[in-house]
Design a protein around this nucleic acid. Structure first.
Lengths: 238, 238
DNA sequence: AAATATATTGACCCTCGGTCATAAAGGTAG
DNA sequence: CTACCTTTATGACCGAGGGTCAATATATTT
């Protein structure tokens, strides 16, 4: 790798850093490439030497964040314990990510919209896809561990559908617990608590042993924090 | 109400109709007020006599749709049966709405961003709030029916949190089952099935009797369709 | 019919994503 | 060091689209 290549990569990092900051503080619509150009002290044209469109840039930012989440998931899966405890560790990882990047969710939501993807480059779409695959595989690993240990009934649902269900309840709970309207109607003060409660309900619904009522999961939470996420500054239920 | 008022209302209806069509077919970013002006055969300025911004207009469209959903929820709650069957009827209503307005979800997603709301008028925000309240109250009614019949344990969760959980799993499942990435990874072909499966898991997790395995809910589905939503052109699991 | 009040318009402004001719910087040969 | 060529960076410019308002058309009153 030549000096040129290294300089180019360093500048791409610089752009991504500032883009991330502006994107999270102003939202996709709110942040302008003129502002970004001013912040990085390069011209707007230079940005386009790295990214083919505003969407392409936003996707790169999102993918970098998704990679961090995938890292957290893979760490979570390494937790030593019962399969449901490992599933719980993934839930912990999700919440940890929520706390660390509270503004990131709106960017991820915006990416669900139709017109977004077709304006991004194929290379960046693939990069995103790869990170999404890592998170999915992490969940699948735990599901299979559940099957093999006999803690999770095999006959009720396909492994993929169980993984989808885990992701769904997490995403949905996060969204609903952030909507001001809902916070008011339901008297929510702690989003994390809602997310984790709903994850518990779902896993109980799958008959994933040991059920919430049969086991001391608070002890598990302490172990997850201490052994896997010592950097966490928060704790479930507090 | 004078003739003027009636003419004004009729024109607002006309604008909303076309705005809805364009919004759903092009997305929020895609649809332009110039196109809308051309479609309704009034000038752009006239649109601004009714709506204070593009966001305000989109919110009005969204609120009209939300009202239809609230209507469906209130019909669902009137289902005569066990409390969990009535909860299931609400789930049915949600899916019915999904099928009837498949494109509406992206509009609703876009509304979750905060920058959206501050550009809409207070009056329209309140109108939306009111419809959201109706859907929430419908869910709460069923939850309380569950408490009172003893089918739903009282001590595990607050009624509001149960309602939030129901909404969360539905929204989350809808989102996840629409993401092309996920459809590929998990081999999904029927979104509705995913949504309903996950709703079932959640209600089972709450110990809302009778549990899925203890009861013939297919018969319930038929009754819901025949008695409450005879206009439905689809059926769960098919 | 004239005067006044109300309703409607579309040319215009501004911001912003995206482009490209031009200029600056970097490299090479004599 | 100079002349020439290649690569890289720039910012003026473009078109699209949201939003405004002085001017115009329509309706109502006197």
């Amino acid at each position: 790798m030549t000096r040129k290549d290294r300089e180019r990569m360093a500048r791409e990092e610089l752009i991504l850093e500032h883009a991330r900051r502006l994107l999270l503080s102003q939202g996709f619509q709110g942040f302008s490439l003129d502002d970004l150009a001013k912040a990085i002290e390069y011209s707007k044209g230079t940005i386009y030497l790295h990214f083919q469109s505003k969407e392409d840039l936003a996707l790169a930012v999102a993918t970098a964040a998704l990679k961090e989440r995938a890292d957290l998931f893979e760490r979570a899966v390494r937790f030593r314990g019962k399969s449901r405890e490992r599933a719980r560790a993934i839930g912990f990882a999700c919440c940890h990510f929520m706390v660390a990047y509270p503004e990131f969710f709106s960017v991820e939501m915006m990416m669900k919209s139709q017109s977004f993807w077709e304006k991004a480059s194929e290379a960046r779409r693939q990069a995103n896809s790869m990170q999404a695959g890592r998170t999915f595989r992490a969940m699948m690993e735990v599901v299979h561990a559940g099957f093999e240990s006999g803690d999770l009934p095999r006959d009720r649902m396909a492994a993929e559908h169980i993984a989808i269900a885990m992701a769904s309840v997490t995403v949905g709970s996060h969204i609903m617990s952030q909507v001001p309207e809902m916070r008011l109607l339901a008297g929510i003060d702690d989003s994390i608590l809602i997310v984790r409660q709903n994850q518990d309900l779902l896993l109980d619904g799958m008959q994933w042993s040991p059920l919430l009522a049969e086991y001391d999961y608070q002890a598990t939470d302490f172990r997850i924090r201490d052994e896997i996420f010592p950097e966490a500054t928060w704790f479930p239920g507090h």
